[in-house]
Write a protein that binds this DNA or RNA. Structure first.
Lengths: 225, 225
DNA sequence: GTAGTCATGTAAGAGGTTACATGATTAG
DNA sequence: CTAATCATGTAACCTCTTACATGACTAC
């Protein structure tokens, strides 16, 4: 049940409507926990009923209303409790790695295409996250500023450092994924050239612990580091 | 819908019962895609109805029966089709990273405990995966051997190399997670000692792109690399 | 006989996705 | 007046988890 804690986390910076919440989740916490609009509204109602948040109904224009949610003391307590609670790990499930296990059953071209898409995907994330980490350290994000305003200045450094460290963890993850995909491309090159069939057959006896030496990646597969 | 492809993947090595399948998923594909027993049986029935697999009812003992499932040609085609199909990426969702975003709200001790658990968790995985990668390269796994037996020897190298590469990708992931957690522990040490409050405040102007230099981790937090 | 393993299921519920649905407000 | 944005929801469906349930077989 992390959705509600993502919501509590955003609302702990500043009260806002469900609509704003969805947008902020998308562009702040969403880097780490995303949620769809159709999930958020019902969850807000449940949380309100349970006393974790409260809504102030505000007018907008002549006829319409909107509900601005803020944390109750119970909500803040729940956020702290959850953050300090030891996490139970759930089973690994990675569709791309599963797919890659069976790359021997597909044409080289298909495997290459998939890996280039993987590199593209994680490169985009890498840039977004890197930029975001910089913005956090520079304290340039509106929501972060709001958060700092209502916290003791003595805590500011910890707040900024923890958040930057988390996002930089995601940056590292992105680099690992890109690395892996590039090693995959080199492996495909080697297999296609028939270089491995002979090479590895020779020194089968001493089990290589790491990836066997592969020539640098080049040629039609592109996407070098 | 990756569960059925994980199942197809295992059955493509060797026909087996649902019971065996659950065990093999747990210890082979499960390193990358896990599935619970209560998921597998109904899915097998559905796949049988759709003609992807077929069951041979075999006796066991006097009264009991068991259903041994094997791939149909349609099942193998589906496995190949899926493996070659470009993957759509789903949103990021990582409960620990979400939690870590709010470590400024918990006692240092609680954050440390969580990070040590993280290191322990991924260290275990690291060892398991490393060992598994070695076994794959040495071709010592029973199921892998069965798989190789029914494939053209010219394909053997590709089969082994792809699988080893995938697992080594997981090894790299584990290292990244451990690294990140260790940087977190050092960050906590620094925050606790009050070293960062002063240090970072001084050079706020030039935005540091990477993690600021931190002293090597030591003291009560343990768990050094 | 009895404990552990082999073997196959069902049911309730949590959490998430996609699609549908509606209407007011505001900027041009 | 019209398009984009603000704002709030519902419904069907899929996947996975947890727990319950049953019973035969095998080794001791």
């Amino acid at each position: 049940m992390s959705l509600r804690h993502a919501i509590l986390g955003v609302l702990s910076a500043e009260p806002m409507t469900g609509y704003d919440l969805v947008r902020y989740i998308d562009e702040s916490v969403g880097y780490v926990w995303s949620a769809s609009q159709s999930q958020v509204y019902p969850e807000l109602r449940r949380m309100e009923q349970e006393g974790l948040i409260q809504a102030t109904v505000a007018q907008r224009g002549q006829r319409a209303e909107k509900r601005v949610y803020s944390l109750t003391p119970a909500g803040e307590a729940e956020l702290r409790r959850w953050a300090a609670d030891l996490l139970a790990y759930s089973p690994d499930r990675d569709p791309l790695y599963l797919k890659a296990l069976f790359f021997d059953m597909v044409p080289f071209a298909a495997a290459r295409e998939q890996l280039r898409a993987h590199i593209a995907h994680w490169s985009r994330r890498l840039e977004q996250w890197q930029e975001r980490a910089d913005l956090i350290r520079a304290r340039r994000l509106p929501l972060l500023r709001k958060r700092l305003q209502q916290r003791d200045p003595a805590e500011h450094e910890a707040i900024v450092q923890f958040k930057a460290w988390v996002i930089e963890g995601k940056v590292a993850r992105a680099r690992t994924e890109i690395d892996w995909a590039q090693r995959g491309l080199r492996l495909i090159d080697a297999l296609e050239a028939g270089r491995l069939t002979a090479a590895v057959a020779e020194d089968r006896a001493p089990i290589p612990r790491a990836t066997p030496t592969l020539p640098p990646h080049q040629g039609p597969s592109g996407s070098e580091a």
